[in-house]
Amino acid sequence: MAARVLACAPCHGAEGEGTGDAYFPRLAGKPAGYLYNQLIAFRDGRRKYPPMNYLLEFQTDDYLKKIAEYFASLRPAFPPPVPPVDSKEILARGEAIVKNGDPQHGVPPCSACHGPTLGGMEPGIPGLLGLRAAYISGQLGGWRYGTRTAFAPDCMQIVASLLTEDDVKAVAAYLSSRPAPADPSFAARGSLPMPLECGSEPH
């Protein structure tokens, strides 16, 4: 399988561990259902990034499922967290949103769906650690501006549109500063009471 998906390696690393380029995410160890949803969304143009849309355009559901399962099964080491460059206040604001949300503005905590350890939940919710700030803020921006979409109800589109630019920066700064989880595993399917409905996460 590694040879078949060599096309992914220049941007995502030979084992999906990510590369030096902050914009390209780690794939390894994310839930297979999440990766599969993204592969389908790229193939069908619902998530827009031309180099990915181009590579996947003529692949079958079956093959994309196998690719998703392959990267979900890999456990390469996490990169060391980037020493935070942002102020303590910004990191504290990020930590507050991640753990408690912003109840005044209706923002749920990230941990409500992505898990108290932020490792994600099967089958469709990804872990949030091991990603760089540029990628995280890029994705939140993608939801706000419609270049990244998911099956309705698109819960992340709703959450991202409730965040301010400063919130996005703070969340990205905090998440990217966290050390790798000691036990990189997902929460079991349906084990977290999600505060809002997501089309990509079956209940």
Partner: peptide, 16 residues
């Protein structure tokens, strides 16, 4: 990637 077909369902991809 060449297309995924019944005769070649899991094609090998050329990296960009």
């Amino acid at each position: 990637y060449p297309p995924g077909t019944s005769g070649n369902p899991m094609p090998y991809g050329m990296p960009p």
